[in-house]
Simulated scan of single mutants.
Amino acid sequence: MQVRIFGREPAVWVYTINTLVALLVAYGLPLTQLQVATISTMSTAVLAAIVAILTRPFVVSALTGAVGTTLTAVAGFGLELSEAQIGATVTALNVVLALVLRMNVSPAASAPPYHPGNHTGRDLTGL
């Protein structure tokens, strides 16, 4: 199953946001180069988070990576977070997700025993 947001792939939305920002800057929106790069990074990170949330099976590292990227990118608008603050936030998110997801995850049944040397699936005891 392919993840779509309002009927479009996430990459289309990232391109659309970047194009709109470039258009607005061309018509006089006073954004610095750092702020434009920050908007691009944040839009990519937010859409990556949405895709991570919608994807099954859920991949915790995809969501926490997107959140970490977003927290780093907001520095372009003046919110300075230290590496320790970003790390603590991502760690807290991991703990919350582990608590929430653990209720919905159960261990898989154990695999059948593996017998070295018999890779054909046939009974070779009579040979």
Rank of each mutant, 00 (worst) to 15 (best):
S110L: 13
S106T: 13
Y15H: 02
S110C: 13
G65A: 06
E80S: 13
A62R: 05
L124G: 01
A37S: 15
L81C: 11
G126N: 05
G68C: 03
V105N: 12
L63T: 03
L47D: 00
I39L: 14
V100K: 12
V67M: 07
V12G: 01
P116A: 11
F6L: 09
Y27N: 03
M42E: 01
E9C: 00
G7V: 01
V95K: 14
A11H: 04
F58C: 06
Q2R: 05
Y27G: 08
L93P: 13
F77D: 08
A52P: 03
T89P: 09
R4T: 09
T44D: 14
T38R: 04
L93C: 12
A37Q: 13
Q33K: 12
A48D: 08
V96W: 13
S40G: 15
L23H: 02
Y27V: 03
G68P: 12
T32S: 15
S40P: 09
L97S: 12
V51N: 03
T38Y: 05
I17L: 05
A75V: 09
P112R: 10
L54P: 08
L101W: 00
P10M: 00
A52E: 01
L20M: 04
V25M: 02
N94L: 13
Q33P: 07
T41L: 11
L29D: 04
H115W: 04
Y15M: 02
L124V: 11
N118G: 08
I53C: 08
D123G: 06
S43K: 06
L71W: 04
E80D: 15
L54M: 13
L20E: 02
G121L: 07
L93E: 10
T91N: 14
A48N: 14
V60L: 14
P112Y: 07
G87H: 11
S110T: 11
A49L: 02
V67I: 13
V90C: 09
L127Y: 03
A45K: 03
S82N: 14
L63Y: 06
A88F: 10
T55L: 02
R102K: 15
N104L: 05
T44R: 14
M1I: 07
P116S: 10
V36A: 08
V90A: 09
T64R: 01
E9T: 01
V67W: 00
R122K: 08
G117Q: 07
A49V: 02
M42H: 00
H115A: 11
Y15W: 01
A73N: 09
P30A: 05
P116T: 01
T72R: 10
N94P: 12
T19L: 00
D123W: 07
V90L: 13
A75M: 05
V12Y: 02
T125L: 10
A73H: 04
I39M: 11
V51F: 06
N18W: 05
G28M: 08
V3P: 02
M103R: 15
A26Q: 10
M42R: 03
T89W: 03
L23M: 01
S40V: 00
A84P: 00
A48F: 09
Q33D: 13
E9L: 04
H115G: 06
A98F: 14
F6M: 08
G28R: 08
V90D: 06
N18L: 08
A22V: 03
L127M: 10
V36L: 07
T19A: 06
T38C: 06
Y27S: 10
A66C: 08
L101M: 12
G28V: 01
L79P: 07
A98G: 15
